[in-house]
Simulated scan of single mutants.
Amino acid sequence: MRAALVIVDMQEVLIPHMWRGEELADRIAGLADRARERGVPVVALQQIGGAMFAPEAPGTRLCERLRLHPSDIVVQKSAVDGFYRSALAEVLDGFDTVVLTGVGTDYCVDATARSAVSHGFDVVLVEDGHSTAANGDQEAGLTAEQIIARHNRLLSAMIHPGGTVTVRSTAEIFF
């Protein structure tokens, strides 16, 4: 297994609105430290575009709590799917596994997980390493915890000839 850690959209503007956003950022930072110690590349996706994610807006910056290193790779994207018209596929050339974490569970994490499998990667979705809006989805009557649990279950049951999705807690990720 040749893996890369992919962190989705952990941007300053989003973290305060995510369920346990700062706690998540700290957990991902620890996971990134472990990845680097094992020689596993850390790739951070950064949403760019639209009023909320204007390139010059301060909130568009990646979260400082991640403690990204100069050696980490930042890939800018313009869609929920981290692969869509971005350099992510090229950056991951030669890898077979994506360890996926970040925000938002029901948007960019979900779309990027599905796309990764379509691109032929196996995905390890970090069970406690992604989050959604702090207030959940009130229209659907789902709490943040329910959305996260539902996506962990749905993505792990996905059938695709390109790859698999397994769900592992941060403690179970050993690179």
Score class of each variant (00 low, 15 high):
residue 105 T to H: 05
residue 106 D to V: 09
residue 150 R to E: 12
residue 8 V to C: 14
residue 127 E to Q: 15
residue 17 H to V: 04
residue 97 T to A: 03
residue 84 Y to T: 13
residue 68 L to F: 03
residue 161 P to W: 10
residue 62 L to W: 07
residue 92 L to M: 07
residue 12 E to G: 02
residue 95 F to H: 13
residue 50 G to F: 04
residue 4 A to E: 00
residue 8 V to E: 06
residue 157 A to I: 03
residue 45 L to C: 05
residue 126 V to G: 09
residue 23 E to N: 12
residue 25 A to N: 04
residue 173 I to M: 08
residue 164 T to W: 01
residue 52 M to G: 11
residue 122 D to Q: 02
residue 149 A to N: 05
residue 39 G to S: 05
residue 60 T to W: 02
residue 1 M to K: 06
residue 41 P to F: 06
residue 14 L to M: 15
residue 175 F to M: 11
residue 118 S to Q: 12
residue 83 F to T: 06
residue 139 E to L: 15
residue 157 A to T: 07
residue 107 Y to V: 11
residue 71 S to M: 08
residue 53 F to V: 00
residue 28 I to Y: 00
residue 82 G to T: 12
residue 3 A to N: 13
residue 44 A to R: 03
residue 165 V to S: 05
residue 42 V to E: 03
residue 135 N to C: 06
residue 137 D to R: 14
residue 16 P to A: 01
residue 65 R to A: 15
residue 71 S to H: 15
residue 95 F to C: 03
residue 40 V to H: 10
residue 77 K to P: 03
residue 174 F to I: 11
residue 25 A to K: 02
residue 90 E to L: 11
residue 45 L to N: 08
residue 154 L to P: 03
residue 128 D to A: 11
residue 53 F to C: 01
residue 105 T to V: 07
residue 85 R to A: 15
residue 44 A to G: 09
residue 90 E to W: 07
residue 119 H to A: 06
residue 170 T to N: 07
residue 170 T to Y: 02
residue 138 Q to F: 10
residue 59 G to M: 02
residue 124 V to L: 10
residue 163 G to T: 08
residue 72 D to M: 10
residue 36 R to E: 01
residue 44 A to D: 03
residue 82 G to I: 05
residue 41 P to N: 04
residue 10 M to C: 05
residue 132 T to W: 03
residue 36 R to Q: 05
residue 96 D to W: 11
residue 166 T to I: 14
residue 4 A to C: 08
residue 172 E to K: 13
residue 26 D to M: 08
residue 48 I to R: 00
residue 84 Y to H: 14
residue 114 R to D: 04
residue 170 T to F: 09
residue 101 T to S: 15
residue 30 G to Q: 14
residue 42 V to I: 06
residue 64 E to V: 03
residue 99 V to S: 09
residue 37 E to K: 13
residue 52 M to N: 04
residue 55 P to W: 00
residue 8 V to W: 01
residue 133 A to G: 10
residue 112 T to Q: 09
residue 65 R to I: 08
residue 146 Q to F: 02
residue 156 S to K: 12
residue 162 G to M: 08
residue 72 D to N: 12
residue 134 A to G: 04
residue 167 V to S: 09
residue 55 P to H: 00
residue 90 E to V: 09
residue 165 V to N: 07
residue 66 L to A: 14
residue 75 V to C: 10
residue 18 M to C: 11
residue 64 E to H: 11
residue 12 E to H: 06
residue 39 G to V: 08
residue 98 V to M: 13
residue 165 V to K: 06
residue 41 P to L: 07
residue 153 R to D: 13
residue 127 E to D: 14
residue 74 V to N: 01
residue 127 E to Y: 07
residue 168 R to L: 14
residue 51 A to D: 11
residue 121 F to D: 01
residue 115 S to C: 10
residue 143 T to C: 12
residue 105 T to A: 07
residue 2 R to G: 02
residue 116 A to C: 06
residue 96 D to K: 12
residue 126 V to P: 06
residue 166 T to D: 05
residue 141 G to Y: 00
residue 58 P to Y: 01
residue 158 M to D: 04
residue 41 P to A: 01
residue 168 R to H: 14
residue 60 T to Q: 04
residue 52 M to A: 12
residue 81 D to V: 11
residue 46 Q to R: 15
residue 62 L to H: 09
residue 76 Q to H: 02
residue 44 A to H: 06
residue 103 V to C: 13
residue 154 L to V: 12
residue 144 A to H: 04
residue 8 V to S: 01
residue 170 T to P: 00
residue 146 Q to H: 10
residue 7 I to D: 02
residue 138 Q to L: 15
residue 144 A to V: 04
residue 49 G to E: 06
residue 170 T to W: 02
residue 162 G to P: 12
residue 26 D to W: 07
